[in-house]
Simulated assay, not measured.
Amino acid sequence: MAQMSAQLVPSLTGAKQPMENLQANPVPRWVVDDIRKMRAYPEQPPVIPHSIEGYQLSVNTNRCLACHKREFTQGSGAPMISVTHYMTREGQMLADVSPRRYFCTACHVPQADTPALIGNSFVDMSELGVGHAGDQ
């Protein structure tokens, strides 16, 4: 099975030989248009529509919260982080962001203008002819 998987699964590394030296691709340009992207599936973490280069994200500071924390959104115009980020695993509400939700880039990522590594045949349910409940 392991020998067959090399034929069935496309390589993501790009190199034919594991230790082959290749010319590095140019660093991709970040998509920084500040336009909120549609999510591909329910509960997908939204992508970051702006540059986060130079943002400090450590145990001591989180630059994202300066705009997206509940009490700062009116002044910044940024969308508020989800109320789920203020909950413990047991559903208990907290006064501040939950430590397990503190490192934003664990789930949220900026977008780069790059081609896909492998093909994608994803089709949204709305394009499959599935109507909304009550449309009949």
Rank of each mutant, 00 (worst) to 15 (best):
M87R: 11
V59K: 15
A112T: 08
G129L: 06
V97G: 09
V31F: 06
M125F: 14
S51L: 02
E43K: 11
R89P: 09
G134V: 03
H132L: 04
R100G: 00
P115K: 01
E127S: 12
P79H: 06
G54M: 05
C107H: 07
S98M: 03
C67N: 06
I35M: 10
L117H: 11
M4W: 09
S11V: 00
L22Q: 11
A112Q: 13
V109G: 05
A106H: 09
C104S: 07
I118A: 12
L65T: 04
H68Q: 01
K16A: 15
G91C: 05
L65C: 04
Q56V: 14
V47G: 10
W30M: 13
G129P: 10
I48Q: 03
L128W: 04
E90I: 00
G54T: 09
N60F: 12
M87T: 03
V59I: 08
L65G: 03
S58T: 11
S58W: 00
E90P: 03
P99E: 01
A2T: 11
T88W: 03
D34H: 10
P28C: 07
M87N: 09
G14C: 06
A116N: 07
C64H: 06
S76D: 04
S76W: 11
E71M: 01
P115L: 01
T84E: 12
T13W: 02
L94R: 07
G129A: 02
Q56D: 11
A6S: 08
A6D: 08
A106W: 05
G134K: 05
P18V: 04
V83D: 14
G14D: 06
